[in-house]
């Protein structure tokens, strides 16, 4: 006999008995994402930057507000990057260790980016999904509010907020968070409108599933792809906004610092031959932005519903 009957029957039994684990759309997407080299490179860069932000402090020989009196006054000659002096990235104009300051700046900038994006994701998704699902007059009112808020020049509002209530990190968070969810809510609403008329939503309504459960169980999980893509693209936007504000001198306050503030200081002194003060923060700034954009791109390709 060509095929052994017993073995085949055993195989058939085993196939029927064991519960097959399905491949969810998420698993598929993850596979596509990891096949995308640029996206994986971006992810690795981001992980490295993250590690640098969290662990970099342990390697610094100086703290971020400690002034090295040996180099003060002769920063251009003595304050350059060197392993032996312990200033791996050199010092800034006041003789503070650039390495420690870049670590600190990375922490603050990443935090602003992630928290800003998180506020956008949570507020924007809930607001947009509600407006889109409920529809009708409520949708109209909710989206007109968003239109009005978007019509206000946000940088102006942000600067006013910081000037009136004082420059502090929490004010910066509030300001950026207040503005970031607007765009998100529009995108989510649009997606919800297309989802709302799908038959599986109708099926849920016909069985009598409550509106809240339909939003959380059927609509939000199907939105997550778009939201994830948009959120990764939002983080660099938040970082840029914060950097711009800090570059103007309105962002975080000394001794705290951020990429924008560091770049601003470095740019101010670059003509005196202390280029390292600009190059190191700029380097981290640029690779992080690239990393986020590549990851966002990869996510978009991986989660694109047209591929499914």
């Amino acid at each position: 006999m060509l095929i052994e009957q017993d073995k085949m029957e055993n195989l058939a039994d085993a196939m029927v008995a064991a519960e097959v684990k399905g491949r969810s759309p998420w698993v598929d997407a993850r596979k596509r994402f990891f096949n995308n080299k640029a996206a994986v490179a971006g992810l690795i860069v981001l992980i490295c930057v993250g590690l640098f932000a969290f662990l970099g402090g342990y390697f610094a020989k100086f703290s971020n507000d400690e002034i090295d009196f040996m180099v003060i006054g002769q920063v251009a000659q003595l304050g350059g990057p060197s392993i032996s002096s312990g200033h791996y990235f050199g010092t800034d104009d006041l003789g503070r260790d650039m390495f420690a300051r870049v670590v600190q700046g990375t922490q603050i900038s990443l935090m602003v980016g992630v928290v800003g994006a998180a506020i956008a994701v949570i507020a924007g998704t809930l607001y947009g999904a509600t407006a889109g699902y409920v529809g009708g007059r409520i949708d109209n009112i909710m989206m007109r509010i968003v239109d009005i808020l978007m019509a206000i020049p946000y940088m102006f509002v942000l600067i006013l907020l910081l000037v009136i209530f004082g420059r502090s990190i929490s004010m910066l968070f509030i300001g950026i968070g207040l503005l970031s969810w607007l765009e998100m809510s529009r995108i989510v609403r649009g997606q919800t409108l297309t989802l709302k008329n799908k038959e599986f939503i109708e099926a849920a309504q016909a069985t009598g599933v409550s509106s809240f459960k339909i939003i959380t169980r059927h609509i939000v999980p199907n939105l997550l792809g778009v939201v994830a893509v948009y959120a990764t693209l939002l983080v660099p936007l938040m970082i840029l906004t914060e950097s711009f504000i800090s570059f103007l001198g309105l962002g975080v306050q000394e001794p705290l610092t951020s990429w924008g503030a560091l770049i601003s200081e470095g740019a101010g002194t670059m003509q005196y031959g202390t280029l390292w003060q600009l190059v190191f923060p700029l380097f981290f700034f640029v690779i992080t932005l690239f990393g986020f954009y590549f990851v966002g791109d990869g996510l978009r390709d991986a989660l694109d519903p047209k591929d499914r």
Binding site: G22, S24, P25, E199, F200, E202, A204, T207, G208, P221
Partner: peptide
Amino acid sequence: RSEIQMVFQDPLASLNPRMTVGQIIAEP
């Protein structure tokens, strides 16, 4: 609503792509 149920036209569109078959059937 539990006495009257509905079957829809487009088989794939009437199932939530993010839920397993078990979850879909169990929903009602």
